[in-house]
Simulated assay, not measured.
Amino acid sequence: MLKPTSQLELLQSIADGIAALFFPNVEVVIHDLSTNQVAYLANNLSKRKPGDDAGLDDFDINSGTPVTGPYEKLNWDGKKMRSVSIPARDEQGNPSYLLCVNLSTGMFEDARNALDMFLSVTRLQPQPQQLFKDDWQEKINTFLHEWIRLQNTSLSSLSREQKKQLVIDLYNEGAFKAKSAADYIANVLSLGRATVYKYLKELKKGEGAA
């Protein structure tokens, strides 16, 4: 007959699973509320050990809240952590253990800072006017994405009818004056070049009839 799993053993398995899934950025600590000591650590990031004081004097265990947090705290290395605490109760409903999941956000903050630095607009210079005054591709891109925004859709979601209307609107905007514009627009809209020319032919025929 299998031995019943104790509450602590079950919590340890949960702690190990969470730590393994989010390794190396998550630590899981189990506090024994009967002794106010650390009972178990998975992926130790805080340099504590079992038997250390849990430091829960100011924590309201009896509040009845199933989950506390997320809240922020500072680790020994000066890096921030975001944490949630979940009390585990016995059969009488009394809290016996506290499961704390601590996410180290240092790596994410470093990545954000690197992106902020890389994408900083303060390092950009205005486009050289003489070099880009006839940049027909950028003008097409600007009109195209503004059109898509107003239609509340995306480039990949455009229907065939929407693509046809976009070709017409681009034509009316003068987008096809550039030598390679038709090929470029066909490529961007994932249309055959023959299809774009067909739309333009129909459009010009209609203008002639008018």
Rank of each mutant, 00 (worst) to 15 (best):
16 D>H: 09
70 P>F: 03
152 N>G: 05
145 H>E: 09
75 N>L: 15
103 L>W: 11
100 C>G: 03
164 K>D: 10
59 F>Y: 10
138 E>P: 01
170 L>A: 10
62 N>A: 08
127 Q>S: 13
61 I>D: 01
165 Q>V: 04
133 K>V: 14
174 G>M: 06
190 S>A: 13
80 K>D: 11
56 L>S: 06
23 F>Q: 11
44 N>K: 08
66 P>M: 02
7 Q>D: 10
57 D>E: 11
131 L>M: 09
87 P>Y: 00
155 L>A: 03
109 E>S: 02
177 K>P: 03
84 V>L: 03
42 A>T: 06
171 Y>H: 13
20 A>G: 14
143 F>K: 08
74 L>Y: 10
169 D>Y: 09
63 S>K: 08
78 G>P: 02
94 N>P: 04
5 T>R: 10
140 I>R: 01
175 A>K: 08
103 L>A: 06
193 R>W: 06
208 G>Q: 15
24 P>V: 05
152 N>L: 06
159 S>P: 09
24 P>Q: 03
179 K>H: 09
53 D>G: 09
26 V>N: 00
37 Q>T: 06
17 G>S: 15
138 E>I: 06
201 K>G: 08
71 Y>T: 04
17 G>F: 14
116 D>M: 08
16 D>C: 08
39 A>W: 00
30 I>P: 00
181 A>K: 05
161 E>F: 05
172 N>I: 07
105 T>F: 04
184 Y>W: 09
25 N>P: 01
82 R>H: 12
22 F>M: 02
21 L>Y: 12
128 P>H: 08
157 S>H: 12
176 F>D: 05
47 K>M: 14
106 G>K: 00
178 A>Q: 02
188 V>N: 02
61 I>C: 03
179 K>A: 10
115 L>W: 09
54 A>I: 01
134 D>T: 11
14 I>V: 15
189 L>M: 08
75 N>V: 07
142 T>G: 09
24 P>W: 04
178 A>Y: 03
12 Q>N: 08
41 L>T: 11
118 F>Q: 10
58 D>R: 05
175 A>G: 10
62 N>S: 08
99 L>R: 01
149 R>N: 13
195 T>D: 04
107 M>L: 08
203 L>H: 11
6 S>L: 00
17 G>L: 15
85 S>A: 11
138 E>K: 11
136 W>L: 06
30 I>D: 01
106 G>Y: 00
40 Y>F: 10
193 R>P: 03
206 G>A: 11
22 F>G: 01
172 N>R: 14
